[in-house]
Design a protein around this nucleic acid. Structure first.
Length: 271
DNA sequence: CTTTCTGTTAGAAA
DNA sequence: ATTTCTAACAGAAA
């Protein structure tokens, strides 16, 4: 579930909690999470976190060493948790950062798809360059958004899920955005009118903006760094509501498979 | 018990 | 070149 609003929520909480703190100890319980980096712990001890930034769903930790960064992706079930009882955590805790006080930063991930890896400045720039336009920034303009349609004819859902075109949308928010915009997920991108593109563009800003304000969506696993849930789940209009009445028109919300993903829509509100 | 499904995405296959 | 499909993994649900 971590999509842009969830990752942004975590970013803000991490920035508040760990910037300026010196790493005194690092424990790697599951080497795969760090891409089997045998120097991971040793190279981080003594450094401090300077800034936490984000592009799409990727978290970027700047450290006090200009050449040392951490790149972290939550994938499906990853979480960063601030642990108030050092040494006590479950079997899904793969990396532990200690700061020499009574708080630890944990990376926890049931499915182990996520990662926390060390990167150089050039590797960070390489990673950034693979992302498309970032919503809620000055580069996210209608003009730039319209450009991603050029030369493409896949369905609109796959287009919006493509991180190299727009950064940060995932399965939940694409369904919600398309409902908000009144466009069916299966529509071929080259059939989407200029007016519809404008509605989708504005819906991305609206839906993501509100979701960030509400601390993201906790559907099953997503948690804030304090373990609490996001409340945008109460605002979902179609996602996970198959078989239930559309909150706008009362029609039954349907679920199909589009772009290989479970896809929810209202057959009356979207066309 | 077995099978199916799940929020992501890199990489293979088409 | 773009688009589609699958594997990576664990656990909940059917």
């Amino acid at each position: 579930m971590p999509e842009l609003p969830e990752v942004e929520t975590v970013r803000r909480q991490l920035e508040e909690a760990v910037t300026g703190r010196t790493i005194s100890q690092v424990r790697v319980n599951t080497p795969k999470i760090t891409r089997n980096d045998s120097d991971f712990a040793r190279s981080l001890i003594g450094l401090s976190f300077v800034r936490i930034s984000r592009i799409g769903k990727l978290l970027i930790f700047e450290t006090s060493d200009r050449e040392v960064y951490l790149l972290a992706h939550l994938k499906m079930t990853g979480k960063f948790l601030l642990n108030k009882t050092p040494g006590e955590y479950d079997k899904h805790t793969h990396v532990v950062f200690s700061f020499g006080d009574d708080r630890e930063l944990l990376f926890n991930d049931v499915r182990k798809f996520g990662y926390v890896v060390r990167a150089s400045e050039s590797e960070v720039n390489q990673a950034k360059s693979r992302f498309g336009i970032e919503p809620l920034t000055s580069e996210f303009t209608l003009e730039n958004f319209e450009k991603i349609f050029i030369g493409r004819k896949t369905n609109i859902k796959a287009l919006l899920l493509n991180q190299s075109l727009v950064a940060g949308l995932g399965n939940i928010y694409v369904d919600e955005v398309l409902f908000h915009a009144g466009v069916l997920p299966i529509r071929k991108s080259d059939s989407v009118s200029k007016e519809e593109k404008k509605r989708i563009f504005e819906s991305i800003e609206e839906v993501l903006g509100t979701a960030i304000e509400m601390g993201g969506t906790t559907f099953i696993d997503f948690a804030h760094t304090d373990g609490k849930s996001g409340s945008y789940v109460d605002e979902l209009r179609v996602f996970s509501r198959a078989g239930q009445p559309c909150l706008v028109c009362g029609s039954v919300v349907e679920k199909t498979r589009v772009a290989g993903r479970g896809t929810h829509f209202c057959p009356k509100c979207q066309s």
